[in-house]
Design a protein around this nucleic acid. Structure first.
Lengths: 350, 350
DNA sequence: AGCCACGGTGGGACCGCTCTCATCGTGCGC
DNA sequence: GCGCACGATGAGAGCGGTCCCACCGTGGCT
């Protein structure tokens, strides 16, 4: 008994004051349902007099088309999903996620398309999400924060559901639309900033290596060091969190005590690093220079404030939203990914 | 021409592989549409054999009921809205908001109710949101972060749309369900902590006074000072942000240079205060003790880490979600508000 | 034996909308 | 003056479900 939808018990309908229907609008306006419908949907083939009559009736009655009825026949739902493949509390509380949300809702703002939040549990629970998307309960989806082993991606690609990924999908199939940050270049710029400041023993606190962002930032750090003829040995891994960054820094100091520059792949990890460095008696930026990544708020509250790479999350996910709208409208010619650049923001830590 | 819904241009329907319908399930199972429907909705009055046949057909076809069709007749949408009355970037990026989101989606997780995010612009644009809610495009709503002058509240109350407020609504009408934090007691505890530490000239950086949280925390501070026989003169207002807190602190130091304790109504404002204090050459907690409010992540990254009042946002909004579910199910007997307590978390700033 | 209650079932109306199609004027060209 | 194209309109058929109701058969009563 593996029904895709859990059974819901029907409750008695609440006594609602009855929302106005198209029928009533038509009657008020003295036209037929068909004409009223036409007037509402673009007004093609509608006389000015009929149009104004309908408009007036709509305003008088406070009419809004019944979404369900409309969507039943148009087979469109006028809603898109923001798919978050992890219910992990870290994700929702992450300012990165908040930024995505803001960008997408900004993109949707001029339309009357609603945003549905789809939190996909990994494994077992993802079935439900998959069914939801597959059966077209939304017109399209924006997918963020995916790890390597995400089964949902393949499902989405197979379903031909219009969707846009924020961040390069781990498994790339042709015909995938996505926006991404040029993490490699960003990591490079951060590292070059350390090099330019005279650091010669530069370490990195990398992000998780099952995320594209983690890998690419690491690669950027590496490339910059190579170009400068410096060693890329001092690498420790964190998990993008403050605590993880602190732990990584301790390992780092133990293994490479003479480090004089650190590129942390996220501000939170950098913040964790600052704490450990201070406690270890190293001044920042005096003894060790630190550059973070993201600039999503934390960077300004640390002591000293972090020099970091600004991650244009909002712009990026806004672009993703607009890409999805274009996809939905069938106006998208190229599926070229849109790549954004991270910008160096110099504060006091480096 | 003030149509409530902007006109959308109809796009040609995308060629979707055709989702299975109830009709097909019924045929596969060798029963009528009615029986299949019954089997799906609780299985009352369905023979075991018919039930298993339908279940099998559902699994084989990967069937999910068409939400639009169902909702057209049941007049329920199986979705609820999270209403955010401000499009302001501050709100979405706020960890408070993220926490709310997390709590509500946790409450909804065991159901198959979807979360629709409704960002209501103030003023003009709020019309659209109001219409959306009024015309029952969702079964209920959770409303967060409302200011004094929010017209939406009245609209919601009038509409009889089941809804739950997070944070005491500014204008209380009978029959309003809400959850809230006991901000006054929280402010009191924070202030008492300062008093117990020996501070005698205790200031507050209050939140905006058009928000209940701002007012109540201020009241708590005031009450604690009165009880201890101390002056409640040193009050400046911020806006819950870091920058606002910094500005407020400068004003505070100018007016009351001898302050030895500060209760900031949010961690962000406290963080701003820390910066200004350090720059002014006052050590924390040596010269001035600082207590914040919220404990939503910022508190641990500041230097020194903030002593603060833990705001159980997630639990609170989860409770709001569950209250809404109960309301929807008609199982709610009392409309007593659920009040949560903030807990003192002692770190290093006080 | 006759009747009724009741579990199981299928037929069909209907939810509110869109969209196709037939109809009806009307102005235009010839 | 007649046909014709075309803009404006209304009637009506669904979209995919739910749910009321009528129907059937069986079993337990009287």
């Amino acid at each position: 008994m593996t029904a895709p939808t859990p059974r819901t018990l029907r409750r008695p309908p609440l006594d609602v004051p009855h929302a106005p229907t198209l029928e009533e609008v038509a009657k008020q306006a003295g036209v037929s349902r068909s004409t009223a419908s036409r007037a509402i949907n673009g007004g093609l083939r509608v006389s000015p007099s009929a149009q104004t009559a309908v408009d007036a009736a709509i305003a008088r009655l406070g009419y809004t088309p019944n979404r369900a009825a409309r969507s039943l026949v148009t087979r469109r739902t006028d809603s898109v999903a923001l798919v978050v493949p992890e219910p992990d509390e870290r994700v929702l509380t992450d300012p990165y996620f908040a930024g995505s949300l803001q960008g997408i809702s900004a993109a949707l703002e001029p339309t009357n398309i609603q945003l549905v939040l789809l939190i996909a549990r990994r494994g077992e629970g993802s079935q439900r999400t998959a069914h939801y998307l597959l059966n077209r309960h939304v017109d399209g989806a924006v997918v963020v924060s995916h790890h390597r082993d995400d089964a949902l991606n393949q499902v989405l690609v197979d379903s031909h559901l219009p969707c846009v990924f924020v961040g390069r999908p781990w498994t790339m199939t042709e015909n995938m639309t996505y926006v991404d940050l040029d993490n490699a270049t960003g990591g490079g710029i951060a590292t070059e900033h350390l090099i330019a400041a005279g650091c010669t023993r530069i370490a990195t606190i990398a992000g998780p290596l099952d995320m594209a962002a983690g890998i690419d930032r690491l690669a950027g750090w590496r490339a910059a060091l190579h170009a400068a003829g410096l060693s890329d040995e001092a690498m420790v891994c964190g998990d993008f969190t403050s605590a993880g960054g602190a732990a990584a820094t301790e390992r780092l100091l133990a293994a490479y005590p003479d480090v004089d520059g650190i590129f942390a792949a996220s501000d939170l990890m950098a913040a964790g690093a600052l704490g450990v460095l201070t406690r270890a008696g190293r001044s920042v930026p005096g003894d060790v220079r630190v550059v973070g990544f993201d600039d999503l708020g934390v960077a300004t509250t640390t002591a000293p404030p972090l020099t970091t790479m600004r991650n244009p999350v909002v712009e990026m996910s806004r672009a993703a939203g607009e890409l999805l709208l274009a996809l939905l409208a069938g106006e998208l010619e190229s599926t070229e990914p849109q790549i954004f650049q991270a910008q160096l923001v110099v504060r006091e830590s480096a």
